[in-house]
Design a binder for these strands. Structure first.
Length: 805
RNA sequence: GCGGGUGUGGCGGAAUUGGCAGACGCGCUAGACUUAGGAUCUAGUGUCUCUCGACGUGGGGGUUCAAGUCCCUCCACCCGCACCA
């Protein structure tokens, strides 16, 4: 019988899972290798063909590393908290835990049907109390270290639904569900002080083996910029405000100042005459959505506050304006405006007819702002200096005069860590009636989510947990003091910040993970996932990891040494797969019709791992055809070994092709270039079909090379080749470099850089010998006839180029 | 606007330090075997001429004996950020 994927795949999957073939042993003395997938959110829709792409890539590497003698940790788990389960609960009254468990079971079934070599004994689930116990524990540590704090932050409050909405639940200013109005409302929120790690998150990127584009995205997100804080006094008030500037050297060109509309200072300094205008402006601005406010195309808007600031360098009175082009969230929410040398200030000054004074030479201030370098003018003690010197000197002056100081600002802001949701890790904090706040003691963790049939909005903006009286209200057993539990839960990011640590020691009830085991496995050697997590997940996880490093829990500064982002698999119409477009391909269907091995092979052969390529049914058929060809080459219809395979063969037809294949496949797997590795395997199979016989050791070697990509078929062929054990721990083939070198090589003969002839020559023929061969070649002689040979370039082993005209 | 990236046959894509452009797969064409083929096998397949040959890696220019690869310039598309002071 021909290649029957259904029976073969079932057989080997049952064996792998049943016999725990891929169990990882932390105590072995093999070198450790940790291959990690970004774990999925188990959605109700199940797996789509995009999921297995990255998973196949890590699986191939894992399987190869095992065969190369490494102890491989390759785990899978579930990022299972999240909004959809909560929505489902709200809609149906069902328990999100039950719903989530069903989805997980479905995901696991689908993933196992693809034959990945996960160690299923290490499966983790972020919604499991034994898991989130440690998520909560990390939070309490952050709290103890002062890195978790409460702040007032505006949230999307929907009065009609009585709940707070996530940004993605708000569409065009109304709730996505029901279309109710949404307003910004300040609420007390837990924040994590990621900004305290900004510099280290930036610097430590250097040593990581990550795509440069991802590093850059993180750098931009952190957005470090150096400059100075400058303090301005307000004329007629006993007040000062601070601006942040990267160009303190242009202080003499500051002709007005601007406060963000939300700046608390605005109401303190606004003049009586301007009060009404300012209030009207602020009202207008707060009505605008974030999108409208940041729309670059729009005209600058603003209003004069009626107050004046004193420029600290020259005592000049300058107007203070309120304008929304200054953001409260960056720097100090206030700027000194230097219209001559800043494009935004220039545009604003032109709009409102404010003075513009050049203080740096170069450019034409009549026409546009000049942001380049040049000698300073109109700047007293800075005159004649260039930009760099000017900045230096200005900061020295400010610090000496007590009018300002050197300052570094970051675009990165602290992490808003609260969610007003039921389906998340409860934040383990109690607010006591005397006003004190304490974190739950470790022995009281996990603080479990209470079971309830009544998940509904609290109506106050608190999470549904606020409805559950006997959970929310607590009494201190020792002092009798009453308290109320925090009702906010953690965001989905929390569980995914450290799951890779738990895989290392998933059942530990005493600690997050055994330090000795962490030392064995960390850092993750290979981490593959989608580029959509390039910034947030990876930054948050790095932050937590550095924190855990600081408190001595983990042994490495960085969690993920090597990172790779796989591309997307698009629908056959070249658009992103989505239910609404009807172009989603379900892996279950492919496994049924073509088999898991075909799906794996096809996804790896489509193109480079990082590229986004459209699904093609024809391409899939081609992948299947290759596996059919492989099967037919090695096995007969009744499942015995093909006569063509001969263990005692002395035939050397395939020698070179085989060794080249071993070399290329090994190198390409290592470099994650699976498409080229597979094409080389195809070349070998084509050669093998042409050969009169296939030496047994080449057949075995090839099956090993194929096994990471098409493990079920490889196991089957391995047993047909007469082996009892799994192929998973067989020794990976090594190529013999000597077999790749031919004694005779083909030399390309060129005239004027164009190939005119070819000739065979000994591989180590000298330049002179090659030149002689070229000149003797008949075709070449015809080409150079009647021409003068100006020059002959001979590259040993490669070519001869004759310059003649 | 800033940062990063990509442009190669009808399609997906290959091409060490500059050294035979188009590996491999899909598709297509012809043939073989077949009652049949959406199976399999064989041959062919960048374009123009189809004979020599010429042209050809987004466009233009340059360096070089030799450029997909290096330099300059322009264009298109994709991703991220976006009034970040």
């Amino acid at each position: 019988m021909a290649y029957d994927h259904k029976s073969i795949e079932k057989k080997w999957q049952d064996y792998w899972v049943g016999d725990k073939v891929f169990k990882a042993d932390s105590s072995s003395n093999k070198e450790k290798f940790y291959a990690l997938d970004m774990f999925p959110y188990p959605s109700g829709a199940g797996l789509h063909v995009g999921h297995p792409e990255g998973m196949t890539a890590t699986d191939i590497v894992s399987r190869m590393k095992r065969m190369q003698g490494y102890e491989v940790l390759h785990p899978m788990g579930w990022d299972a908290f999240g909004l959809p389960a909560e929505q489902y609960a709200l809609d149906t009254g069902n328990d999100p835990a039950v719903f989530t468990q069903q989805n997980i079971d479905n995901f696991r079934r689908q993933i196992q049907a693809l034959g990945f070599s996960y160690d299923w004994d290490r499966e983790v689930n972020t919604t499991d109390p034994n898991y989130y116990k440690w998520t909560q524990w990390i939070f309490t540590k952050l709290y103890e270290e002062g890195l978790a704090y409460v702040d007032e932050v505006a949230v999307n409050w929907c009065p009609a639904l009585g709940t707070v909405l996530a940004n993605e639940e708000v569409v065009d200013g109304v709730s996505e569900r029901g279309g109710h109005p949404v307003v910004r409302k300040p609420m007390k929120q837990w924040m994590l002080k990621i900004t305290a790690y900004a510099d280290r998150l930036l610097e430590d990127l250097e040593d990581l083996d990550w795509p440069e584009s991802i590093k850059d995205m993180q750098r931009n997100w952190i957005g470090k910029s150096e400059g100075a804080d400058v303090h301005f006094e307000v004329d007629g008030h006993d007040e000062t405000f601070t601006v942040f500037t990267t160009r303190p050297d242009t202080l003499f060109g500051a002709t007005y100042a601007v406060l963000a509309p939300e700046h608390p200072f605005v109401e303190r300094i606004v003049s009586a005459e301007q009060k009404e205008a300012v209030q009207a402006y602020i009202n207008e601005v707060t009505k605008k959505s974030d999108l409208e406010r940041t729309d670059l195309a729009k005209e600058k808007s603003g209003v004069f506050s009626g107050a004046y600031a004193i420029n600290p360098v020259n005592g000049e009175r300058i107007q203070i304006w309120v304008a929304d082009y200054v953001l409260m969230s960056y720097g100090s929410g206030a700027i000194m405006a230097v219209p001559a040398h800043d494009e935004r200030d220039y545009e604003f000054a032109k709009t409102f007819d404010l003075p513009i004074r050049a203080v740096v030479e170069g450019g034409n201030v009549e026409e546009e702002a000049y942001t380049g370098d040049g000698k300073h003018i109109n700047s007293d003690f800075l005159n004649g200096l260039d930009k760099e010197e000017g900045i230096q000197k200005a900061i020295e002056w400010l610090e000496a005069e007590g009018k300002g100081e050197k300052k570094t600002s970051y675009r990165l802001r602290d992490w808003l860590f609260s969610r007003q949701r039921y389906w998340g890790e409860p934040i383990p904090v109690i607010h006591w009636e005397d006003g004190s706040v304490t974190a739950e003691k470790v022995e009281n963790l996990p603080l479990e989510l209470p079971k309830t049939e009544n998940i509904k909005p609290s109506g106050t903006g608190e999470s549904p947990l606020a409805n559950i009286e006997d959970w929310v209200n607590v009494v201190d057993p020792e002092t009798g003091m009453k308290g109320r539990r925090e009702t906010n839960t953690m965001p989905q990011w929390a569980g995914s910040c450290w799951y890779f640590l738990r895989y290392i020691d998933p059942d530990n009830s005493e600690q997050l993970a055994d330090p000795e085991k962490l030392k064995e496995w960390l850092p993750v050697d290979m981490y593959i996932g989608g580029a959509e997590h390039a910034v947030l997940h990876l930054l948050y996880a790095r932050f937590w990891h550095k924190f855990l490093y600081d408190i001595g829990v983990v042994p490495t500064k960085e969690p993920f040494q090597r990172l790779f982002n796989q591309g997307m698999i698009l629908g056959e119409n070249n658009e992103k797969m989505s239910k609404s477009k009807g172009n989603v391909v379900n892996p279950d269907d492919i496994v049924e019709t073509h088999g898991a091995d075909t799906l794996r092979l096809y996804e790896m052969f489509m193109g480079p791992l990082e590229a986004s390529v459209a699904w093609s049914t024809n391409g899939l058929d081609g992948a299947r055809r290759f596996l059919d060809r492989v099967h037919r080459l090695f096995a007969t219809d009744n499942g015995s070994l093909s006569d063509k395979v001969k263990y005692d063969s002395q035939n050397t037809d395939l020698e070179r092709s085989y060794h080249e294949t071993v070399k290329k496949v090994t190198e390409n797997f290592e470099a994650l270039r699976f498409n080229t590795a597979i094409s080389q395997m195809m070349v070998f199979i084509n050669d093998a079909y042409k050969a009169s016989e296939i030496p047994g050791q080449y057949a075995e070697g090839f099956v090993k090379l194929l096994s990471p990509v098409a493990p079920h078929l490889a196991e089957e062929l391995w047993s047909i080749l007469g082996h009892e054990d799994t192929i998973s721990y067989e020794v990976w083939p090594i190529h013999d470099e000597a077999k790749l070198i031919d004694d005779e090589v083909e030399i390309v003969l060129q005239v004027m850089g164009k190939v005119r002839s070819k000739v065979s020559a000994p591989k180590d023929a000298s330049k002179e010998e090659l030149e002689k061969l070229a000149m003797e070649d008949e075709t070449i002689q015809e080409w150079i006839q009647g021409k003068t040979v100006r020059k002959v370039i001979a590259v040993p082993g490669k070519l001869v180029n004759i310059v003649a005209n």
